[in-house]
Simulated scan of single mutants.
Amino acid sequence: MTAVLAHEIAHIRHKDVAVMTLASSFAIALAAFAKGTGRAAVEAPGLFFEEFPFGLLFGLAILAGGAAAGLAGFLAHLPLRWLSRSRELAADRAAADLLGQPGLLASALLKVHEEGGIPLRDLRRGVPALGLVACRTKGGSLMATHPHVHVRVRALTG
């Protein structure tokens, strides 16, 4: 329990919530733009065909812009996932330094991983927050927000 609290205190000291919020603002803006253009295209279909050549070109431009923003938003999340994984490793290192016993955190990580396993869905009920162990991702390590437990334990003990 002490090791888990030290890990979370390290997140607070490093201001990880502020770092991730600032880093994700561009990706959030792109995703909102893509969603808005998609909604505009769906809600106003008559607009595109009223003035045949110009309305259709305008509609296609909106759809292309929304698709490009959606793709850019997805690609913008990749560095965020890397940043999140690096912040987790930094919190692990800081917790180990704070306690002076990296084995305590390694033991806690292994215990959480082996006993309950890592859930397939996020159990935080829509509240995005930093946690010791995040849910598994189907996209593999590229989309994971936390490094694999064995990578974290190796970094602590090796």
Rank of each mutant, 00 (worst) to 15 (best):
A67F: 07
A94I: 14
L57C: 06
G70A: 01
A6L: 06
L123V: 14
G126W: 09
P119K: 07
L30V: 01
A27V: 03
M20Q: 02
G100V: 12
L5H: 07
T145F: 09
A61H: 01
S25F: 05
V4F: 00
A23S: 00
P79G: 02
G59P: 00
L98N: 14
P128Q: 13
G158Y: 02
L71M: 06
A34G: 04
L98H: 15
L63M: 04
G126F: 10
H77Y: 07
T145D: 09
L22R: 15
L56G: 07
E43S: 02
L89Q: 15
S86G: 06
A90L: 15
S86F: 15
H150T: 12
A40V: 08
R154D: 12
G131A: 15
D16R: 06
G65T: 10
M1N: 11
T145A: 11
L56N: 00
G66H: 00
A29N: 04
H14T: 13
A18Q: 11
P45Y: 04
L110V: 04
L120H: 13
L110G: 15
D97R: 14
L156H: 04
A3D: 05
L104Q: 10
F33A: 10
H7W: 05
E51H: 14
L105Q: 07
V127A: 14
I62F: 07
G73R: 01
T37M: 12
M143E: 12
R136N: 09
L105M: 09
I28C: 06
D97H: 14
M143P: 05
L89F: 09
A106Y: 03
L60E: 00
G158W: 02
G46Y: 02
A129F: 14
L22E: 12
P102N: 11
A67H: 03
R154G: 05
I62H: 07
L22M: 12
P119H: 02
I9F: 08
H7F: 14
A95Y: 04
S25W: 11
L142W: 11
L156F: 03
K138E: 11
R81Q: 15
E115S: 15
G158S: 01
H14W: 10
L75D: 03
P53Q: 03
E43D: 06
R154F: 10
A144K: 04
V151L: 08
A31M: 08
A3G: 07
A34W: 02
A69Y: 03
A94E: 15
L47R: 03
L30S: 00
M143W: 11
A27M: 02
P53F: 07
E114S: 10
A108D: 01
A64R: 05
E43H: 02
A23I: 03
S25H: 06
T157M: 14
G140T: 07
G140F: 07
I118H: 13
V133W: 03
M143T: 13
